[in-house]
Amino acid sequence: MIEAKDVGLRYPDGTLALKNIDLRVEPGEIVYITGSNGSGKTSLLKLFMGAEYPTMGSLKVLGQPVVKGQAAAIRQLRMAIGPVFQEFRLIKGRTAMENVMLGMRFLDIPPGQLKKNAGDALVKVGLEHKAHSLVENLSWGESQRVAIARAVARKPALILADEPTGNLDKDNALKILELLTSFKDKKTAVIITTHAPHLIEGEKDAKHIRMEKGSMNWERLG
């Protein structure tokens, strides 16, 4: 599903964000990426969704090499990913339902199925009662759950969640992690970044990648 060999990322300003990343993620796996701010967690997720391209090494996501100059292939890759962005990136002026549906409108999903998928996803995140509320009227936690619903309604092969526990107390953070990991199945892998390693202490059957200054160490939890 993800195969990174000696991957590195240097930004145009010269900053080395990632180096020597070697990892393999299989379908059905849960991977936590922890590390302090600036350790390279978000940069790694950006590489996985084709928002950045490796400047060193090779990276394949869902069988697609992540390289520059293959816009159509990268777009196809993004269609197969369910991203939950750090700042949610919900589109203002639209309802929760419209936001969830918007993430699917250009996918190969029959028109009649769009609304059903969106409704089901909102039920899963417990927000069916807010389906017709404008996203700017939702609380922080509700917005986050709409972002998760948008990601999972697409029935992606890979869910990428960037700092979904940021700004949350421990109880709510654990609830969000539980919600996100519940979408893992035989075909779907879930990758979650967090700067709070204590939140994943009790996790079993998950990979843990610890990032530090752009480098990674990994271990199997549980």
Binding site: M49, R78, R154
Partner: peptide
């Protein structure tokens, strides 16, 4: 919103 749609693969 345009960037978001691009990241979603639109």
């Amino acid at each position: 919103p345009i960037d978001t749609l691009r990241l979603l693969g639109a």
